[in-house]
Amino acid sequence: MHLDHPDGYPQRHTHSAAPVRADGSRRALRIGLGGPVGSGKTATVAALCRALRDEFSLAVVTNDIYTREDAEFLLREAVLPPERIAAVETGACPHTAIRDDISANLEAVEDLEEAFRVHGPLDLVLVESGGDNLTATFSRGLVDAQIFVIDVAGGDDIPRKGGPGVTTSDLLVVNKTDLAPHVGSDLDRMARDAREQRGELPVAFQSLRSAQGVAPVAGWVRDRLAGWTARA
């Protein structure tokens, strides 16, 4: 599952995204989570926070479409203290805020990094996009890696249809596998189609209700973090 590109993170065009901070230390790894509305992005972020918060210094940036609900959900679930969660407003265009004009998100990430610079710098910032469509992907100027979350109830033909999120994300998560028998989705077919679209890029089948829960995705994030700090 660990398919890190050794030095593959593309050229940065923005002032904050250089992998090394002004003081010479390595900045936090930034991982984006995108995907259609209701596929389980926020639930995955919450589960990731619970799984990783004792090992790493974490923060989350949410991109709600018209409310602060995602940020408030994370606060209510108390997955992280409030100072580690920031909300960005996206002006009716969630994909614009993560791809075409990333300035507000970069600012939110930087502010979080700055707030924790002295006492335990951040290791990882998760940037959750507002629920959007299958073409929404993160700019490489904003995140170092991206996870695209779809769910089996959205239709088992989504991997076959492809699109930038399905084909190019660094990790494809097929969520809510526990629902597959109830909605008539064929997981084997989804796996085959995903392999066809993605080649060697990894796919994780996930049910947050199972005993395994978010573990496979958390493991992938751990590998990414290990690769990131190894290059420091």
């Binding site: 407003e89 996206t90 002006g91 265009c93 614009t96 805020a97 075409d100 004009d101 990333i102 300035s103 507000a104």
Partner: peptide
Amino acid sequence: GRFPAGGHAHS
């Protein structure tokens, strides 16, 4: 209007 300076989120 596509100049990436945050204007898209303001009305």
